[in-house]
């Protein structure tokens, strides 16, 4: 998408007046649609649609050996796949850099034990642990990918059911796991502290959240903040452009404020989802 100067000025003035081109104020999000438990073969899944951005996340669980330097912890890994369906730019290896950036930011945001406790995923110290594979598929790309992906990941992890292990038998070096026969015997993951990401975009003299594609074009610099409770688990600047230290501070404040609200809204919505609801394109 390319904009002419007049269009850019229009967006710029709109942001200065706190009335953006789609009627939102600077701290407002576009409507978000979320549904969970939509992939049969996954242990947890979620689909999120934020305006035109469509994300599908599925969590697979496998048994693995813990890293020797972290014998008490399980593992979590993020894979992002930018499907060429989303935009033709992703064709071939086009989406690779974006995919790496997204998965690195997610990994960094989930790294601290305060945000996501990997110790719960340990089965037997130094021998066996659960490994979570979080696969993120970008179906449609309508701006603000970081926020959408983090919300979808959190929803999918909320929905994830870890199989219950009845007993562990150790015979020499062999470890045998006895998984419960009942498929409904499972544990939920604790995601209350899992981070949500907010992209804060500087347009003109002001900062906005949830920029659409046109607004992303007018931005002079943007940062992504991952908020876990009121703490920052990752902050990183994205795209070309630099910020003054003061602007950075004010965008951090804005990001924190919006992130806390966003997290509350998400947790509230997730707790109200019941299993018999019937909607979405995959059901």
């Amino acid at each position: 998408m390319s904009l002419c100067d007049a269009e850019k000025t229009f967006i710029l003035h709109g942001v200065a007046e706190n009335f953006r081109s789609d009627g939102r104020d600077r701290e407002g999000y576009r409507p978000i649609e979320i549904e969970t438990d939509i992939v049969q073969h996954a242990f947890g899944s979620a689909r999120l649609r934020l305006a035109n951005t469509d994300i599908l996340v599925a969590v697979k669980i496998e048994v693995d050996t813990p890293l020797p330097e972290r014998p008490f912890e399980g593992k979590i890994e993020f894979f992002v796949d930018c499907s060429a369906n989303a935009t033709p730019d992703f064709e071939g290896r086009g989406g690779e850099t974006l995919a790496i950036e997204l998965s690195n930011i997610l990994a960094s945001a989930y790294k601290s034990p305060k945000t996501f406790n990997l110790k719960k995923l340990c089965i037997l110290k130094g021998k066996k642990c659960w490994k979570l594979y979080v696969d993120i598929l970008i179906l449609e790309c309508g701006g603000n990918l970081f926020d959408a992906v983090s919300l979808a990941v959190k929803a999918a992890l909320f929905n994830t059911k870890v199989p219950l292990i009845k007993s562990v038998n150790i015979d020499g070096d062999n470890v045998e796991l006895d998984v419960s026969d009942n498929v409904f015997d499972c544990e939920r993951l604790d995601v209350t502290n899992a981070p949500v990401m907010v992209t804060v975009c500087k347009i003109g003299d002001n900062c906005v959240v949830d920029p659409n594609l046109a607004e992303e074009q007018c931005s002079v610099g943007s940062i992504v903040v991952a908020i876990s409770q009121e703490y920052f688990s990752t902050v990183t600047s994205i795209g070309i452009g630099s910020l003054h230290a003061q602007t950075l501070c004010s965008s951090l404040e804005l990001g924190q404020k919006v992130g806390i609200r966003l997290n509350e809204a998400l947790m509230d919505t997730l707790s109200h989802i019941t299993s018999d609801q019937d909607f979405g394109f995959l059901k």
Partner: peptide, 15 residues
Amino acid sequence: QEQLCQFYQNGYVSL
């Protein structure tokens, strides 16, 4: 210009 052209943080830090 006193501009911060890159900023990165990880861990768990308050404002």
